[in-house]
Every structure is written in structure tokens, then in C-alpha cells.
Design a protein around this nucleic acid. Structure first.
Lengths: 153, 153
DNA sequence: CGAAAACACTCAGTGCACTGACTAATATCT
DNA sequence: AGATATTAGTCAGTGCACTGAGTGTTTTCG
């Protein structure tokens, strides 16, 4: 049995793509705030007062990872975390003023970074690329949670 | 400043793609051997006797990560690690018989998994998708190591 | 109402990934 | 040869990501 060419393996390429993105993020966006952390800030900018579970749903992080990311962000004073008076299981999260400021600044830099990241592709290709990324990820995700028959078609 | 739609951000999609792949890998390929570990086994199947640095180059892992992955694989008896007599800085790595057996078994399962993973795309789209993944990753990688002028064209 | 189920979150354990500092060995350059 | 560079690998520290077990709260149901 011979060895295989990893560059034909989507999983290997997915990992490399993420590493490539990490590299660009740390050089062009921020060394302190990571991309998942920005995702959480962004989710709370869109919908203040979300609980951790829902933030995870929005950003694509599992419960444990959300907890870690949230703890770092609240440790830096970028978000605040209060028990829900209505439902004592939940913590409600929202941005602090500083968190909102950081989000605004990073949003600009992120846009520039995305531009560079995708620059090897033409505009038409970029649209196709993002669409394919979504389709493949969504399909695999549905294997986990067999969502209602996915009537969407 | 409003919030942004993360599904238009390649970095966010890259992370989701990798998570999707991880999910499929653990369910369809192996729970013990991870995808990066398989990458190392595969590199050593192709080129027995590589040192850690070169393995990292082939698989896309930095020196520290290679060290960890190698230590797990040799702990499981799948690879062996000997000091290079010619160059005392290097460790030379090669598969054990069991390592070769595991590689063979996982190669079959990985092929099936890749098929499922890419199934949301048509055959033509799959080729385009892999090509785009390579182009974007390669371009970002070159920002790190400004390789000789990249004469390849 | 009270037991059982569901839910939100935490915690411990494993693994990948990067950086920066360090050790040891080889190569290079007077 | 001897000082200096470079190189291979290690180690400590940080952060994402998943699982499985455990705690406490709310909901559901008999």
C-alpha cells in the first residue's frame, strides 16, 4: 500500500487553510483578540443579552469552548456576564463600552484581512469559494444533529 | 457600527470546515488516530527515515506540534525514532510494522470519508474546491516565508 | 405537588497549533 | 583551531476544540 497525496485530501487542506488564516489574523488584525473571540463580540453586537449556549450556536463553538472564550473576554473587560433573573441556569452576556470599541476597530481590520486572504481568487471565484465552504460545512454539521428533514428544498 | 455576517468571512468558514471534518473523521475513520497523526504516518510511508523537521514540512505542522504528535505515535508503537549517526541533532523516524498496518487500514477509511465529506459538491465542483483551497493556503503561506521569487510560473 | 427529564453551565482530560526561550550539535568563517 | 551562525529538537505558556462527568435550575408529567 503506497502513500497518498495529502494535497488531494480536503481535511488536510481545511487544516492548512485555517493555519493560513491564523497567520494573517495575527499579523493583520490582532495579536490579543483571536478570531473566535471576535466572533463572540460580533454576536453580542448583533444580539445583546444572549446566553452562552446561543452565542455558541451563532459562532460555531461548543459549550466548553464558549465558556473559555467568554471567560477571557470578560477577564479583559470586553463583555459582562450576569445571571438571568428569569432563568437561573443562564448567564446573559453583553458588550461593555470598551468591548464595542474593540469590535469596531477589529471589524475594519478584518475586512482588509479578508480582502488579502482571498486575493488569490478572482471576484467571481471568491463568491463560489465561500458558497462551497458553507455547503460542505453545513452538510457535515447536519450529520451530527439530524435536524428535521431539512425541508428547505 | 453594526455587526457583521460571519458567514461571509473566510476565516470563520475555514474554522467551521475544519470542525466539520473533525466530526466526520472521528465517526468514519478513527477515534484513536487523528488526522494530523495520519498525515505523519503517511509522510513516513512515502519517505521512511525523515527527520522531524522535514515531516513537519510535508504535513504542515510546526516543530513543536510535530514533536507532540511524534511522541504520541511512538508511544503507541506506530513509529520509531533513532538519533541520526551522521547528524546528532536529528531524529530519524520510520514506521513500525504495526504503523504500516494502521496506515493501510486508515487509508481505505479516509478515502470513504473524503467521498462523503465532499458529496455536497459535484465532481467538477470538487476539483475546483480543492484547487481553491490550495491556492488560498499557499498564498498566505508565502507571506510568512518570502520564498525565492517563486519563479515557478 | 413531587419525581423525572431536560437544560445551562462547569470541570477534568486529551489533542492540535503557535510563540519564545533554551540546549545541544553541526557548519561557517576568519 | 576557535569564535560565531545556524540548525534540530525540547520545554513552558497560551488558546481553540471536543468528550464525558458532575452541579444546579427549570420544565414536564404523572
Amino acid at each position: 500500500m503506497a502513500a497518498v497525496d495529502l494535497t488531494t485530501h480536503p481535511g488536510h487542506l481545511a487544516r492548512r487553510l485555517q493555519q493560513a488564516h491564523y497567520l494573517l489574523w495575527t499579523t493583520m488584525v490582532s495579536e490579543e483578540i483571536t478570531s473566535p473571540q471576535y466572533g463572540v463580540l460580533n454576536a453580542l453586537m448583533a444580539e445583546p443579552g444572549l446566553d452562552q449556549r446561543t452565542v455558541g450556536e451563532r459562532v460555531g463553538l461548543d459549550r466548553s469552548t464558549v465558556a473559555e472564550v467568554v471567560s477571557r473576554l470578560s477577564g479583559r473587560g470586553l463583555i459582562e456576564k450576569v445571571r438571568d433573573a428569569q432563568d437561573g441556569r443562564r448567564y446573559l452576556l453583553r458588550l461593555t463600552d470598551e468591548g464595542a470599541t474593540v469590535h469596531r476597530k477589529l471589524t475594519l481590520r478584518t475586512a482588509r484581512m479578508n480582502h488579502v486572504f482571498l486575493s488569490p481568487l478572482s471576484d467571481a471565484e471568491q463568491a463560489v469559494f465561500l458558497d462551497m465552504l458553507r455547503r460542505v460545512s453545513d452538510a457535515a454539521e447536519e450529520l451530527r444533529s439530524p435536524e428535521r428533514p431539512a425541508v428547505r428544498a
